[in-house]
Lab assay of single mutants.
Amino acid sequence: WKVTVKGVEYTFDNPEEAKKFAEELAKKKGGQIHYKDGEFQVH
């Protein structure tokens, strides 16, 4: 499971962890999460 933040990729074994990480980042940066092709992208 991948989380991509401004072109930087983070990989997680667990989808729950990936989702949590993406949500935290989106909150911090005031961005939005897009889920696409099996990965979370924070913009």
Rank of each mutant, 00 (worst) to 15 (best):
V8G: 09
T4D: 02
P15Y: 15
Q32P: 03
I33M: 06
T11K: 13
F12V: 00
Q32E: 11
Y35M: 06
A22W: 03
E16Y: 13
E16A: 11
K20F: 09
E9L: 08
F21M: 04
Q41A: 11
K6P: 10
V8Q: 13
I33K: 02
H34I: 15
T11E: 11
V8L: 12
D37H: 04
H43Y: 12
T11C: 07
F12S: 00
I33H: 02
A26C: 09
Q32R: 06
H43D: 10
K19L: 14
F40C: 08
V42Y: 05
I33V: 15
W1S: 04
K19C: 08
I33D: 04
G38E: 05
L25E: 12
Q41T: 13
N14Y: 07
H43F: 12
L25I: 13
I33W: 08
A22E: 02
G31T: 06
K20Y: 09
K28Q: 13
G30R: 05
N14L: 06
Q32C: 11
G30L: 04
F40Q: 03
N14H: 09
F40N: 03
D37M: 01
V3T: 01
G30P: 05
G30W: 05
H34N: 09
V3I: 04
E23F: 07
D13R: 07
Y10D: 00
E39V: 14
G30V: 03
G30Q: 06
W1N: 04
G7W: 04
P15G: 11
Q32K: 11
Q41S: 10
G7L: 04
K20E: 10
T4W: 08
V8F: 14
N14K: 09
K19W: 13
A18C: 02
G7N: 09
P15E: 14
L25M: 13
K28F: 11
V5R: 02
Y35F: 12
Q32V: 14
Q41R: 08
K28M: 12
H34R: 06
F21Q: 01
K27E: 13
Q41P: 04
A18S: 01
Q41F: 11
K36T: 10
K28E: 14
K20N: 10
K6L: 13
F21Y: 07
K27F: 13
G7Y: 04
K29P: 10
H34D: 09
E24Y: 13
G31R: 00
T11M: 14
K20R: 12
G31A: 09
I33Y: 06
D37K: 03
A18T: 00
E9T: 14
T4S: 10
E9K: 08
V8R: 11
K29L: 15
V3G: 00
K28A: 10
T4G: 01
E16R: 10
K36H: 12
F12L: 00
K19E: 09
E17S: 11
G38C: 08
V8T: 11
E9C: 10
H34C: 12
F12D: 00
G7V: 01
K19H: 10
K29I: 15
A26L: 08
I33A: 05
H43A: 09
L25P: 00
L25A: 07
T11D: 08
P15S: 11
D37G: 04
E23I: 10
E23A: 06
E24K: 08
K20D: 08
Y35W: 07
G31P: 04
E23K: 07
K6W: 12
E39C: 03
K2I: 10
V5S: 13
K27V: 11
K20T: 10
K2V: 08
G38M: 08
K6M: 14
K36L: 12
E17R: 07
F21S: 00
F12C: 02
E9M: 11
I33S: 04
W1P: 01
E24C: 08
V42A: 03
N14T: 13
N14P: 00
D13W: 08
E39A: 08
A26I: 14
Y35P: 01
H34L: 13
G30N: 09
F21E: 00
K6D: 15
K28T: 11
V5I: 14
K36S: 12
V3D: 01
Y10K: 02
K6F: 14
F12H: 00
N14D: 11
L25T: 08
T4Y: 07
V5Y: 15
E16C: 09
K19V: 08
E17V: 09
A22P: 00
T4L: 09
E39W: 07
Q32I: 14
K2M: 06
Q41G: 04
A18P: 00
V5C: 13
L25Y: 12
V5H: 15
K6T: 13
D37T: 03
K20Q: 12
E9Q: 12
